[in-house]
Simulated assay, not measured.
Amino acid sequence: MPDEQEVLATLVDKRRRVARGDVLFHLGDEFRSLYAVRTGFFKSIVVGGDEQSQIGGFHLSGDILGFDGMAEGRYESEVRAMEDSEVCVIPYDGLSDLAIRFPPLQRQLHRLMSREIVRERSVMLLLGSMQADQKVAVFLLGVAERYRRLGYSGTSFILRMTREEIGSYLGLKLETVSRHLSAFDQQGLISIDKREVILKDLNALQRVAGSAIGAGSDAPANRTEWLEFVKCSDHPELN
């Protein structure tokens, strides 16, 4: 009898390229699939109660996109590629059927959903109560941790997003983000040249972040394991 990994590999049989600037799915589109980010970088855009759009998160390799469409049957955000990217398409109807037949897969799916809910609530609560310098520090530490988990440097990296996009995510003005990045640079906490960032004094940056450290990390460690679990890299490309 095949295990859940072998069966899931038969379900996740398509890869889809998304060019920089193109939309993976729109707000209000019918929910049909989840998407595992194989390569590249995405941003999700949400609309608040005041009808103003705001960046709800940044997503890279190993992240699962589309969970927000499960409740109402339509995606509640727009996801756009920030660079040429590639995802694996996971049809949700087939995934649900498999989850019923294979309890370990169902538990794995429920864990991912639960952690996504907890992450979103934690980020909202912490960002809502933090000072601006804390928000920027937490964001930098979170980006660094995500790169570290993917096997890259956790102290030197390129920011894929603009300062305006960082501000949208953190609920800060562009000028505020730039001011605090410059202050961290002048204080010797970081070195920044356009989008290239080097974290020079992690301890000092962590002190600025305080008890909020970790809120900027959008990707639970097991997401990259799940990308390997579905063997995304083995599937043919969907044009």
Results as ranks from 00 to 15, higher is better:
Met113Ser: 14
Leu95Val: 04
Ala132Cys: 00
Glu76Leu: 08
Val87His: 06
Asp133Thr: 01
Glu83Pro: 11
Arg115Trp: 07
Arg121Leu: 10
Glu86Tyr: 00
Gly94Thr: 04
Arg107Ala: 10
Glu86Trp: 02
Glu83Trp: 01
Leu95Cys: 03
Leu125Ile: 09
Val138Ala: 14
Leu105Met: 11
Arg101Asp: 13
Glu78Asp: 02
Ile90Thr: 05
Arg119Ala: 09
Arg115Tyr: 10
Met82Ser: 10
Asp93Cys: 04
Val123Arg: 12
Ile100Val: 14
Gly73Met: 09
Ser96Glu: 15
Val89Phe: 07
Met130Pro: 01
Lys135Glu: 02
Arg119Cys: 03
Met113His: 12
Val79Ile: 10
Glu83Asn: 08
Leu112Asp: 00
Ser129Thr: 09
Pro91Ile: 03
Ala81Val: 12
Val118Phe: 11
Arg115Lys: 14
Ser122Pro: 00
Tyr75Cys: 04
Leu109Phe: 10
Tyr92Gln: 09
Gln106Asn: 09
Ala132Trp: 00
Leu141Asn: 06
Met70Trp: 03
Leu125Phe: 08
Lys135Asp: 00
Gly128His: 07
Ser96Cys: 02
Glu72Cys: 01
Pro91Asn: 06
Gln108Ser: 13
Glu76Pro: 00
Cys88Gly: 12
Ala137Glu: 02
Cys88Ser: 15
Gly142Met: 09
Val123Thr: 05
Arg121Gly: 02
Arg119Asn: 08
Arg119Ile: 01
His110Thr: 05
Val118Tyr: 11
Gly128Pro: 13
Leu140Phe: 06
Gln106Phe: 07
Leu125Tyr: 06
Leu140Trp: 09
Val87Arg: 05
Gly73Val: 06
Ile90Asp: 05
Val87Leu: 09
Arg74Ser: 10
Ser77Thr: 11
Asp93Tyr: 13
Gln131Phe: 02
Ser114Pro: 00
Arg101Cys: 08
Asp68Arg: 00
